[in-house]
Write a protein that binds this DNA or RNA. Sequence first.
DNA 1: CTCTAATTTGAATCAACGCTCAAAGAAAGT
DNA 2: ACTTTCTTTGAGCGTTGATTCAAATTAGAG
Lengths: 187, 187
Amino acid sequence: MRYKAGLETRDRILASARSLIAERGLEGTTIKAICEQAGVLPGSFYNLFPSKEQAILTVVREAIDAVDPDPAHQGIDTLDELVDAYVRFLEEQPALSRVYIRIGVSGAGSSPELTGRMLRHHQGRVARFAAAMRRHSPELSEAMAERRAETLVLALNGIALHRVLDPGFDVGWHARALLDDAAAAVS
Amino acid sequence: MRYKAGLETRDRILASARSLIAERGLEGTTIKAICEQAGVLPGSFYNLFPSKEQAILTVVREAIDAVDPDPAHQGIDTLDELVDAYVRFLEEQPALSRVYIRIGVSGAGSSPELTGRMLRHHQGRVARFAAAMRRHSPELSEAMAERRAETLVLALNGIALHRVLDPGFDVGWHARALLDDAAAAVS
DNA sequence: CTCTAATTTGAATCAACGCTCAAAGAAAGT
DNA sequence: ACTTTCTTTGAGCGTTGATTCAAATTAGAG
């Protein structure tokens, strides 16, 4: 393989960027810090990425994509499964999930591109949750399901947001408690 | 009055800082931008604040204090009133409420002082919501009220978080929908 | 082994940041 | 009017940020 070393370096840089953005935020992350953690000098960074912004955008895309597993809806169809999948994402990929939450606030105002991407992603997520709700409770009107789904998704984001502040926060426990409340409300 | 001009300038600087932090975040806000918007030069800034950090901390304190009106619990005792008060804060003070949400993510990792302050504030808020719940439904166990209160507060923060991304988002409508769901779950 | 393409280096550039300070400029008190 | 106190000015300091590039180094292909 011809470009092996370069691609490995690229991965190392992306990993550093990921953890630094998770800890210090989009603007708090510097090229120097990324390079130090990756064991590389700034020159190498600019051989692999055209700019800091592009590198960050790559990590951001990773994060957004990682929120929704199985984009083709394979096997994840009930509300429980959707919530569990999100909880698993939060617990198994803490760095990426922190990045995801940070985009929502840091991206807004600074990058219209990011804001648009996040809003579209949110809409898709709500639609998926709403569909799961209607599959379980067909008597729900479309509007009602949409409303409840959005409330649930926003609440889950609130839980994820709090974990950025308190790393020891038990997201799984709270997410499931939230789901119980939602179930109680429907019945 | 002897220090009139200085205090007015101080207010103008704080107002600029407030709106800039709301739009661009803690680290995205520069002294130069603050001074430009306030119609003042950097020298004046440093006559009134010892550092950028102190000025920002002042705005942050404002924001945290503004979240909870009536700290002495006067007149705001039911869950509806607590939620309404928060909605009113979000709607009537959009800049401060954006600052509040931003602190949660930007402060974490960069400033332990801010993180601690936010966590303590959150705890107090949850306790207040839990007390209101138990006053309305005395059959609720303390643990259960606490859990439901925390879920509700986090969900409200999720709603506020989303409005940072989407300025047109109707926080009032969603907050009340959330409250209805919570009521349905209890009954 | 050799040659060439891929990769890393690290010093240097330029802009922007937070911050300082001596001097000039209002206002208030007498 | 005069003097003292408060207020603003704006050039300028040191530091750090992102970014560039010619030269040195490494490693795969023939």
